[in-house]
Design a protein around this nucleic acid. Structure first.
Lengths: 172, 172
DNA sequence: CGCATTCACTTAACATGTTAAGTATCTCGC
DNA sequence: GCGAGATACTTAACATGTTAAGTGAATGCG
């Protein structure tokens, strides 16, 4: 732990230390991953008590503020890929937390909405969830939190359209 | 795509709009998730070309700077859970990218190190990876990037020891 | 020593991420 | 109105995340 072992005079090195790269643990992806994990660790226990995973909760929340959405738009909102969403919707429907009906105008489209059961579950989870979020805000600082979110948004913007030319998740 | 289809005249509202919560898409977990995805989207194609996943790459990078580590410490460094690491090490070993030997002092421990093949692969991937990182830094701004990482670290610190009392991943 | 406990790791089971292929429906040009 | 292409989703296949249980080896205590 306290042993750096990055000693230039270390002659016992079998193979390593030959590929020059940034310190791995300080890379941006790792920072983001660790930060997000630190945050989600706070929420998971509460969600778990209600039999919900993080993604299922995202979907319910996305549905709570609207009447009904197509699957594709829901995927964009909840930031899930189609296949993941497809599976989760199947399960949520089996649990009667959501409802699905085929759009009249376009038989390909499936309109998804939250059910009465789903709303009841949300009402049960929301207070705890909000309390946790409030505690995180208190610990980190509200203004700092806002600033962080601002920077995260800017980072996203910086990289928009850099990757694949056909970024499906891009905001039309 | 350009069709919103959120018809206000749809009087068939089933249930929604009854659970008061923050705007879902502006929650901290979502911001972190989107930001990280925006970043990783840049790296994945290059890694994929070399037959590596993001996690495999994390492991190789973690191994490149040391001689050998126990699996448990590697898990902490690469920020992977034991079971995931166990599987990935099995695969990387089958591909001769890493080597494993049981510790003499403690037969339970398994010492992992990167192989010559692994180093060769890293040497092949590193340039592109560094170039991508440089481009991200250029786009977002070096000082802003440093500031962001600083804030992410603080966020982590804020939440350390809030979740489970026995946070195994805590830095000793 | 004997044995319960702890430890390091693996396996198992289920859920999601990710890419590719499949299916049904729609659109459009002709 | 028909057939090629686009669209909206689903299924499939493989890899990882996550939790729980299993296995073998070390520790500690009587």
């Amino acid at each position: 732990m306290t042993k750096k072992s990055a000693d230039p005079a270390d002659t016992t090195v079998p193979a390593a230390r030959q590929v020059p790269m940034r310190d791995f643990s300080r890379s941006l992806p790792m920072s983001l991953l660790r930060a997000r994990e630190a945050v989600m660790r706070q929420f998971r226990p509460s969600l778990r008590e209600h039999g919900l995973t993080e993604q299922q909760w995202r979907i319910l929340r996305a549905l709570a503020s609207i009447e009904a959405v197509e699957v594709t738009e829901l995927a964009r909102t909840a930031f899930l890929l189609g296949p993941s969403l497809s599976r989760i919707l199947r399960d949520l429907e089996a649990r009667d937390l959501i409802e699905r009906r085929t759009a009249k105008a376009d038989q390909r489209r499936s309109m998804v909405s939250i059910s009465k059961e789903g709303l009841k579950l949300m009402a049960a989870v929301a207070p705890t969830s909000e309390a946790i979020y409030a505690e995180i805000t208190r610990r980190f600082g509200a203004s700092k939190l806002a600033e962080l979110q601002e920077m995260l948004g800017e980072l996203e913007q910086s990289l928009a359209g850099l990757g694949s030319a056909d970024d499906t998740l891009a905001d039309g």
